[in-house]
Amino acid sequence: MLLLVAPAALVLVCFQIIPIFIGMNASFRDWSLVNPAKTWIGLKHYRDVLSDPVFLYTVLPNTFMLMVSSVVLSLASGLGLALLLNKPFFGRPVVRTVILLPLTVAPVITATMIRWSFNDQFGVITNLLSVLGFPEIGWLSDKWPSFSLIILTDVWIWAPWFTIIILAALQGLPREPFEAAQIDASGKWRTFTHITLPMLKPVIIVCVLIRSIDAFRTFDQVWILTGGGPARETEVFSVYAYVEAFVHLDYGKGAAAAGLGALIMLVVGIGLYKLVNRLMEVSR
């Protein structure tokens, strides 16, 4: 029986668990890529990261802001889309197919598309907006527009995921409670809030958990869209660690940041897991 997990466990240990320890080891040393003296310097890197204003006041807030806004917005739009697709209408198969695009196209390409569509001079959407009379926005040159673009891209990618899962759940719901609600004179909105949502709650909670964990490590979209700029203002945690290690060539500091991220995620992950279990209890 051990044989069944052995290969999986072996790969996991060698290429995920051991590297994490190597990374921790590196984070305690002056392990610069250009100057591999590798002197033991204790917690210095951690102190550096934790006293780095970029990390504290830009990266951390950005990361959590991206996590929360992306999850909330994709959940809301994904849920709306699922409700729409739950009713038959002309062209529904087309919509169902089209919403798979974001899930199959590489985030790198998606980010490229968005970046091109919002190009300051030649972007189709930029031009469309100015034709419609909106004031000009430096989409990729100011912090908040760039950050909204990152969020938008994330929502574009992940809303369909919520849609597909919630749609499957919707179609699996028993019909009778809705009929009983109809007889009980429950209006459309009240049925949604009092019957549909509570029945979807378990699915939604699990989706939010998975998405939140994944949203924390967002890298591709941010890297392609803004590269963390302008002036490191849209950096999120993964980008920060990468930039410290490979752009500033301070490997130890990057590893320390990555380690801190893992630690935060462990706490957040366990917390969310506990929360989910609690919510599931209540919602049963």
């Binding site: 290429f15 590297p19 994490i20 490590r217 945690f237 893992a262």
Partner: peptide, 20 residues
């Protein structure tokens, strides 16, 4: 184990993997 390691951000082990 697999639950916990699912939560680990990729960057946290890809950075050291570079060394490995």
């Amino acid at each position: 184990t697999i639950y916990v390691f699912r939560t680990v951000p990729y960057i946290s082990f890809v950075l050291p993997l570079y060394l490995v």
